[in-house]
Amino acid sequence: MLSPQSTETVRATLPAVGGAIGEITPLFYAKLFAAHPELERDLFNRGNQAAGDQPRALAGSIAAYATMLVEHPEVRPGAMLARIAHKHASLGVTEAQYQVVHTHLFAAIVEVLGAAVTPEVAAAWDEVYWLMANELIALEAKLYQEAGLEPGDVWQSMTVTGRRQETADAVSFTLRRTDGEPVGAFRPGQYVSVAVLLPDGARQIRQYSLSTAPDRDEWRITVKRDGEVSAQLHGTVGEGDRIEVSHPFGDLVLDESEAPLLLASAGIGCTPMIGMLDHLVRTGSERRVVAVHGDRSAADHAHAAELTTLTGELPGAALHRWYEDRDGLVDLTAVELPADVRAYLCGPLPFMRAARAQLLERGVPATAIHYEVFGPDLWLAGS
């Protein structure tokens, strides 16, 4: 909780800082990468940096956190922080890196706002930063501890045991640990990071959902060709090759209740849902399940046959598909939903925003709607 003095200072300066945050965050990243070029090359997604997505996501999270501190001090932004913490853990972020970020972020704030950053203002926003940072540090430490890992030590060598072309632009890889040890447990819906060495020497990292049940002896990821890392995986990785993969993380996971489920996805967002469905089938679940998927066309739908098979093996499960070239966009207002449904969403941001709005209009509580964003979380940034 912010101190009373800092609360008033942040409340008074939030409009100015919020109005300038779009200038502050790109300058911060420029300063950070000038001082630490290895971070841009080997840790941060440089495609998201070039598109401006990561600066917008950072701006949105800072503004949302500061606003909650001053307007709703009794509420902790648990979902937002959990999502960030899981992403950081999957990248191997450590506590020491928060001081590096602080140095360059506050240098950017001072440069943009100038004389408006009085000692009192600087102290108040420093308090905001370290409240948020320390919450994330604690969450990440817990994630590392639960996984039995030293902080940051998340990487392992895995061997590709199979490659399957799912659609023209999506391919699946099955993976086993190169050292022969079991692949390890995860929760249905979680993802792994994959680190790829690119031709220019950069080590770039992306996240991919695990699209099988946790009790199988192999992991599987499905990669859609949409950037430099996915293109490298599509073009150069085949059976017998080794890739660097993180321990599983991610907070979009099935709860352990018997509540009915809505699993709604679009595009490559189908992958965590396939993993959840596989888990439900293999554990003999009798939960009522409504599966919804939207895609550009039937030909673009990865794991389409598997989706049909898995839902067919669940008692009373319902499956609804929308293909844009035939049916238009997904419309959840037309789907029969059971009472007390728990909704899980994954796909492009416009799809998830529309789906969430439709569910809220139907009376599904916000606390029962969960979503996964790959890449920067632009939901809070309003993009």
Rank of each mutant, 00 (worst) to 15 (best):
I205A: 09
G152W: 08
T178N: 07
E140C: 03
A231N: 13
G294K: 10
G275P: 10
A57K: 07
T236F: 01
A298F: 04
R282Q: 15
Y129Q: 05
V154R: 02
V93G: 06
C346T: 04
A64Y: 04
L2S: 04
V171N: 07
S246G: 08
Q97P: 09
Y344R: 10
M273I: 14
W219S: 01
D325M: 08
A357R: 15
F33V: 09
R287K: 10
D179T: 10
G18L: 09
S383P: 06
A264E: 07
T94K: 15
R225M: 09
M68K: 12
T9K: 03
D179S: 11
Y191K: 04
L91Q: 05
T236K: 08
I221T: 09
G189A: 06
G152D: 02
R242Y: 00
A30W: 00
D340M: 05
G250Y: 02
D278A: 13
S265K: 09
T309Q: 13
P15Y: 06
G269K: 07
I221Q: 07
L254M: 09
A366P: 02
V373W: 04
T159C: 09
S61N: 14
P73L: 10
P77L: 13
A298C: 08
D217M: 00
V237G: 01
A298V: 13
G60W: 10
S172H: 01
G382N: 05
D251Y: 10
R225C: 07
D126M: 06
A66S: 11
G328T: 11
D53Q: 15
M1W: 13
P365T: 02
L378T: 04
Q190S: 04
Q232N: 05
P260G: 03
P188Q: 03
L81T: 07
L360G: 08
G382F: 07
G294P: 05
G240Q: 07
L378A: 05
E150W: 10
V364Y: 01
H102L: 13
L139K: 13
P376M: 07
A20I: 01
D331S: 12
A266Y: 08
A185N: 13
V192P: 00
Q204W: 10
M352Q: 12
E127L: 11
V364E: 04
L359Y: 06
Y144T: 05
W130H: 13
R242V: 15
A202N: 14
Q145P: 00
N45Y: 14
R83Q: 15
A185I: 01
E306N: 05
L197Y: 00
S209L: 04
F186Y: 14
I221G: 00
Q232M: 12
P338D: 06
H36F: 11
E71T: 14
A82H: 14
R11M: 09
G114P: 06
R296W: 14
L32H: 09
L43T: 14
G227A: 06
R356N: 05
Y344N: 06
L32E: 06
L359M: 05
S230R: 02
V101S: 06
M158L: 13
D251T: 12
A30I: 00
A317I: 04
I243D: 01
A304G: 10
L263V: 11
